[in-house]
């Protein structure tokens, strides 16, 4: 069974990964390849890297950064930021990207979507849409202008699908960085409007927010930017929280004899049997248990 992906979105500014709050405030986290390495080790399903300076500075995605990020883990990478031509996409794919995310250029030059889809296949082209709720409808937000434009999000998403986009990366501007949960109405509207996979982002602050999307919307992937930087082993802990709290019917595919989860389990480190505090972080175990673990050796699997 195809699982729902848990995706980390690394927002890059001045060459380092940052936390983004409301598209206006930024806090530094670490070098991009370091973030890719730890997220990959924690069992993330996919990583999206968005270089938010590139478009404004009029340059393309930094090739060196792409190469460093691709070398840091064996995990699917989607790269976005300032990509304007098929030649640039070809370079980035060669450096180790699996998919390319278009935002500004998809709006300004929709022809690029179909041109790129023809050369690299639809599965490679992701269109990123920033949505904002204005006057009773969702409109496309132009981050380079810093305001919404007169395009309806649903119309734009449908058009992208028609042009050959393989996925929609849907961001809610209002919820970005607020840790208050995802915009479920927006997600449901867009998922119904298109028949390609939709990845949603914007607002994760607690593992229960991911659970809401899994239960109430048909998104193919749930992404978060800042959230995965909040605490150690965030991916592992979140996956275990979700696996624990999903109903059995969500977990079982009757066509397959074994049990199967829509959240891909981690193979190495896990938090089996752990409880969670009110913030959704793994709670501390009692002293006796910790004492018993002190000298236990857990070797890493050798392939």
């Amino acid at each position: 069974m195809l699982g729902t992906r848990l995706i980390a979105c690394l927002v890059v500014k001045n060459g380092i990964a940052v936390q983004s709050i409301g598209f206006s405030k930024y806090l530094p986290v670490c070098r991009v390849e370091i973030a890719v390495e730890y997220l990959s080790r924690w069992g993330i399903d996919e990583i999206v890297i968005v270089d938010i300076d590139a478009s404004r500075a009029g340059r393309s995605f930094d090739l060196e950064m792409a190469q460093a990020a691709a070398g840091a883990g064996f995990v699917p990478l989607t790269l976005g930021g300032g990509i304007k031509s098929v030649a640039e996409i070809r370079m980035l794919l060669k450096q180790g990207a699996d998919k390319i995310c278009l935002n500004n250029s998809a709006r300004l030059n929709p022809g690029l979507i179909s041109e790129a889809a023809k050369v690299f296949g639809s599965q490679c082209i992701v269109v990123s849409i920033d949505a904002t709720f204005v006057d009773g409808e969702y409109k496309v937000y132009d981050y380079s202008l810093g305001r919404e434009i007169e395009t309806n999000v649903l119309d734009f998403a449908k058009e992208c699908e028609k042009l050959g986009a393989g996925e929609i990366f849907l961001n809610s501007v209002a919820n970005d960085g607020l840790k208050q949960g995802f915009d479920l109405d927006l997600i449901n509207l867009v998922c119904k409007a298109v028949s390609i996979p939709v990845i949603v982002i914007g607002g994760a602050g607690h593992p229960s927010h991911f659970l809401d999307v899994l239960k109430q919307a048909k998104a193919s992937g749930v992404a978060a930017g800042n959230y995965f930087h909040f605490f150690e082993h965030s991916v592992i802990a979140t996956k275990n929280y979700l696996r624990k709290n999903l109903a059995v019917k969500d977990l079982v595919d009757p066509n397959i004899k074994g049990k199967e989860s829509i959240i891909r389990p981690n193979s190495y480190v896990d938090y089996k049997g752990i409880s969670f505090d009110e913030m959704g972080r793994p709670a501390k175990k009692d002293e006796d248990f910790l004492e018993s673990q002190r000298f236990e050796f857990h070797p890493e699997e050798i392939i």
């Binding site: 699982g3 992906r5 639809s122 599965q123 996925e167 028949s195 996979p197 193919s220 992937g221």
Partner: peptide, 28 residues
């Protein structure tokens, strides 16, 4: 939805040789 994107499980017909090291099941 098409494209088929993400992590899917396999129904392995023949383990030999490509899947000889892959575990099918783990205890949850």
């Amino acid at each position: 939805r098409v494209p088929h994107v993400g992590w899917n499980t396999l129904e392995i017909i023949s383990k030999d040789p490509l899947f000889s090291l892959i575990d099918d099941y783990a205890l949850d």
